[in-house]
Lab assay of single mutants.
Amino acid sequence: QEELVKAFKALLKEEKFSSQGEIVAALQEQGFDNINQSKVSRMLTKFGAVRTRNAKMEMVYCLPAELGV
């Protein structure tokens, strides 16, 4: 569980995922086979993730800066 949270936060820091499906796929690539869209959705809510525009003006998920991840 701890490893999943770390990987999840690291992915969001990249600010390149525009959908929950993309986050699920990226986590599965890292070996988290039991991850699915509903789990990702709950984690996004739990950590207060928001959708914002990145440098390329794409809408992407990211974590609020005050979490200091």
Rank of each mutant, 00 (worst) to 15 (best):
L11K: 01
R42N: 11
S41V: 10
F47T: 05
V50L: 08
S19P: 00
F17Y: 15
Q20T: 13
N34V: 05
V60L: 03
L12C: 04
E66L: 06
K6S: 11
E14F: 06
L44K: 01
S41E: 14
E2F: 12
S41N: 10
K16N: 05
F17G: 03
K56V: 07
L12W: 03
G68R: 05
L27P: 00
E29F: 08
K6F: 10
Q37D: 11
Q30W: 08
Q37G: 09
G68F: 04
T52D: 05
A26V: 08
F47P: 01
G48Y: 03
E15L: 10
E22V: 04
L11C: 04
A55T: 08
K46M: 14
G31T: 01
K39N: 09
A26Y: 12
S19W: 07
N34E: 11
E22S: 10
K56L: 09
E29C: 06
E66D: 13
K16E: 05
G31P: 00
V50D: 03
L63V: 04
V60H: 03
L4C: 15
K6I: 12
Q37F: 09
A49W: 03
S19G: 06
K56M: 10
Q1A: 11
A26K: 08
D33E: 13
C62F: 06
K6E: 12
G48N: 08
F17N: 02
E29V: 09
Q20E: 15
A55Q: 09
T52W: 06
A65N: 12
Q37I: 12
V69L: 09
L63S: 03
K16C: 15
L12R: 00
K16I: 08
E66M: 07
L44C: 02
N34R: 09
S18W: 06
Q20P: 14
G21T: 12
A49F: 04
L44I: 08
A25L: 12
A7D: 01
K13N: 08
L63N: 02
E58M: 07
V50P: 02
G48D: 04
L11Q: 01
E14R: 07
G31M: 03
Q28I: 13
A65Y: 11
A25M: 12
V69D: 15
A25P: 00
M43G: 00
S19R: 10
I23H: 00
E58L: 07
M43S: 00
E3V: 09
L63G: 02
C62K: 10
T45Y: 10
G31D: 02
A7F: 06
M59G: 03
N34F: 13
F8Y: 01
R53E: 08
G48I: 02
A25G: 06
V40P: 00
A49T: 03
M43R: 00
L4N: 00
V40L: 05
V60S: 02
S38I: 12
L67R: 10
L11V: 05
L67C: 11
L63M: 07
V5G: 07
A10S: 11
I35D: 01
E2Q: 11
E14P: 02
A10Q: 12
R51S: 04
G21S: 13
E66A: 08
N34Y: 12
S18N: 06
L4G: 01
F32D: 00
F8M: 07
L4V: 07
F32A: 01
E58C: 02
L12H: 00
P64V: 05
Q20W: 06
F17V: 04
D33M: 14
F32L: 02
L4R: 01
Q1H: 12
S18I: 08
Q37N: 10
T45A: 11
F17A: 04
A65D: 14
R53K: 10
V60W: 03
F47Y: 12
G31E: 02
Q37T: 12
A55Y: 05
F17K: 03
A25E: 09
K13R: 15
N34D: 13
K13C: 05
Q28H: 11
A7S: 07
E58A: 05
S41Q: 13
E14H: 06
K56G: 07
E15Q: 10
F8D: 00
A65L: 12
Q1D: 14
V69R: 07
K16T: 08
T52Q: 14
Q1W: 14
S41F: 08
R42P: 01
A65E: 14
K46I: 13
S38C: 05
Q28C: 06
I23T: 01
E22D: 11
K16R: 14
A26D: 03
L44N: 01
M43A: 01
N54P: 02
L63A: 03
R42C: 09
S41G: 09
L27K: 01
F8R: 00
A55K: 10
V60T: 04
Q20Y: 08
E15I: 05
I23D: 00
K13H: 09
D33Y: 13
L4W: 05
F17L: 06
K13L: 13
L63R: 02
A49V: 07
C62G: 13
S38L: 11
D33S: 14
V60F: 04
E22L: 06
Q20L: 12
G31W: 02
Q1R: 11
E3N: 12
K16A: 09
K46R: 13
N36Q: 05
L4F: 06
P64Q: 05
V5S: 09
V24I: 08
A7Y: 06
A7L: 07
A10F: 08
K9H: 11
R51T: 06
Q1F: 12
T45S: 11
G21E: 15
T45W: 09
K39E: 14
K6N: 11
I23E: 00
C62V: 13
F47N: 03
A55E: 12
M59N: 05
Y61W: 15
Q30G: 06
V69Y: 04
V60G: 02
E2I: 11
E29K: 12
I23S: 00
S41Y: 09
E14Q: 14
C62A: 15
Q20F: 08
E66F: 08
D33K: 14
G21Q: 14
Q1P: 10
E15N: 06
S18M: 09
K39Y: 11
F17P: 03
S18P: 04
L12M: 06
L44H: 00
M57H: 13
V5L: 12
N34C: 10
V60M: 03
M59T: 06
L12D: 00
K56C: 03
L67Q: 14
E29T: 09
Y61D: 01
Q20G: 07
G68D: 15
S18Q: 14
S19M: 06
L67H: 12
Q37H: 11
G21C: 04
K39T: 14
I23K: 00
L44F: 03
E14I: 07
E58R: 07
V40N: 00
A55H: 10
I23N: 00
V50T: 09
M57D: 15
I23W: 01
A65P: 15
E66R: 06
K9Q: 08
A65W: 10
C62Q: 08
D33R: 14
G68E: 15
A7H: 06
E2A: 12
Q1S: 12
F8V: 06
A49K: 02
A7E: 03
N54L: 03
P64A: 06
T52S: 11
F8Q: 00
V40H: 00
S19F: 09
V40I: 08
V40Y: 01
Q30C: 06
N34M: 09
N34G: 12
V40E: 00
E2R: 10
L63K: 02
A25I: 12
M57N: 15
P64E: 04
K39A: 13
E15M: 12
